[in-house]
Design a protein around this nucleic acid. Sequence first.
DNA 1: GAGGAGATCGTCT
DNA 2: GACGATCTCCTCT
Length: 213
Amino acid sequence: MRIAKDRNSSALVPLPCDFYARDPRVVSRDLLGKVLVRRRQRQLMTARIVEVEAYLGQDDPAAHSARGRTARNFVLFGPPGLSYVYFIYGNHYCFNVSCLPDGEAGGVLLRALEPISGIEQMAEARDISIDATAADHDLRKLTSGPGRLAEAFGVTRERDNEKDLTSPESDLFIVDDGFRPPRVDVTPRIGITKAAERPLRYIIAGNKFVSRG
DNA sequence: GAGGAGATCGTCT
DNA sequence: GACGATCTCCTCT
């Protein structure tokens, strides 16, 4: 599959707060096919969301928010539509979006994206050599995995945690370009030990950019 | 292509 | 002090 042509994300209207103020499972499913946008100077990086995981809050043992609010996870308890970025395994950032109304914990982890534009900047950020004509096989290295996509988009806790993804002023947000996934698969989440059996991972069926399976 | 192990450090107990 | 919502490299098949 070739990279999708840039479907005129020119509207560049961030998804509204209401979109995120719902159950993370609903938000997860609806986020599939949406486009993550990073605006830096005049450069634009865009990529389609093809894999996410829902984390449900205090009823979900696998969620960071399971044991209550801490200095790290406070964003999950705040208003919807904020970015929650955390550092893991000593070398990776993971990028989440807070869900549910203010005061209720919940979030969605972005696990894989399909690059659309700004591919050279992503490759540079990932420190790998690649270009817009590269095969899918190579492009997967850019954004197929939570740590990879965070690095490709330059997402760090220092820069992006608690960022309002619903603001038109933001340099990081998510838009709807009209694409609708033909089919969505739901599977258990990856890389967790608690509540590992719950089907809370959502992927665009058949998409080559999902991180596994 | 699949599987295993090391790297590496913030967070929480 | 232990663990973790991961990635990459290396080895084996």
